[in-house]
Design a protein around this nucleic acid. Sequence first.
DNA 1: AAATATATGGACTGATTGGTACATAAAAAA
DNA 2: TTTTTTATGTACCAATCAGTCCATATATTT
Lengths: 194, 194
Amino acid sequence: MRTREFDTRQAISNAMEVFWRKGYKGASMTELLAAMGIGKGSFYAAFGSKHELYLQALRHFRDTGMLFKHSTALSEAKFAQESIKELFDQLIKRTINEQKTCMLGKAALDFRGQDPQVAEIVDMGVSQLEKAILEILSKAQATGEIAEGRDLKVLSSYLTAAFYGIQVLGGAKPCRENLEQVVATVLSIVFPSE
Amino acid sequence: MRTREFDTRQAISNAMEVFWRKGYKGASMTELLAAMGIGKGSFYAAFGSKHELYLQALRHFRDTGMLFKHSTALSEAKFAQESIKELFDQLIKRTINEQKTCMLGKAALDFRGQDPQVAEIVDMGVSQLEKAILEILSKAQATGEIAEGRDLKVLSSYLTAAFYGIQVLGGAKPCRENLEQVVATVLSIVFPSE
DNA sequence: AAATATATGGACTGATTGGTACATAAAAAA
DNA sequence: TTTTTTATGTACCAATCAGTCCATATATTT
C-alpha cells in the first residue's frame, strides 16, 4: 500500500471554486488539476472523470453551507425577520462584491432536464434552503411574529425564488440600492408592517 | 458580385436556438453551422467569430420578444393584474413544458463581470423587461388599480426578480402547482386582494 | 459576353479537449 | 528486508475545438 499524498476533501473544495467561477464546460481539466495540485494519474485513479468530480463539487457546495453562511446562527436569531433579512443582506453582499452566485442555481439552468444526477443534487440543495427558511418561519409563527393560517411552505418557496431572482437581477444590473429595495418589497409580504 | 445564399436573420435565429439550449461553451461551431445551414467559409466571412455570433444571437433574443411573447397585447389588456398574470403564466408554461429559461438570465450568470459586451446586451434586455412592466403598472396606477404613492420602479424590479427567480426554482424543482402558488404570492403584494 | 467581385464548401491548421497506459515511487504488510 | 499494493507523474492518445486558406462557383456590372 501507498498512502494518498493529497487531501481529497481539500482537492474537491479547490475544484469546486473553479467550477463555481467558470461553470462545468468552462473549467478545463488542466485548470482543475492545477487548482487541486495533483497530476492526471492521481486524479483519474481517485475521481474517475471530470463529470464525477463536478458532482462531488456540487455536493460539497451544498453540504458545506456555501448557500448561506452561519445558517444555525441565522435560525437562532431572536426574530425571524432579522434572520431572513440577514440572509438576503449576505446574498446582496456576495452578489455585488464577489460577483458570485449560487452554484446550484447556475447548475439548475445549465443542466435543466439533461442530467438526472445533477438534477437530484440541485433539487436536494434547493429543498434544503426551503426547509431552512421554513424552519425559521415556523418558529416565527409559533411566537406570533407571523400570523396563524399563513401557508409557510408557499412562503418559503416564495423566498427561495426571490433568493435566486435577486442573484440573476444582480448579475444583470449590479446596483446595491435597487437590490435592497427589491428585498424590502419581498419581505414586506412575509412581514407586513402594520 | 455574388449574392448571399442564406438569410442572415434566419441564420442568427437558428444559431440563437442552439445557444439558448446549450449555452455558449456548450454550442460547438459544427452544431451551429449545421443549424444555420451554411459552411465555414460563409460563416467566417459573414460573422467573423463564434463570439460575435453569440452577441448577435443575444441581441436577436432580446429584440424579437423572446422574453415574453405578445408584449403589446399584454400591455393592452384591460387590467394590469391580468397582463402580469398572463406574463407569469406564460413563464411557468415555458419553464415546465419546454424547459427553457430566459437566455439573457443565463448569460447574466454565465458571463457576470467577465464580458462587457454581453453585460451591456443583458443589461439592456433586463431594463427592457422592467420598463415594459413599469408601463403596465403606470397605466394601472392611472386607472386606480394600483394605489397612488407606490414606487412603481421598485415594483417592476421586484417583478423582474420574481420572473427570474421562478425560472431558477422551476429549473430545480419543476412543479407547476408550487410555481403557481409562488406567483400568486408574488402578485399579492402588487395587487392586494382587500 | 467578358470582367469583376464576392459567396461558397472543403481541406487543413495548431491548439486543446478529456482520458488512458505504464513505468516508477513509496508506503504498508509480510 | 522483502513482498505487495497502491499512488504518482509523464508520455501519449484520438477527438474535437475554433479558425484559416484557397480554389471554385455564381451573380452582378460593364
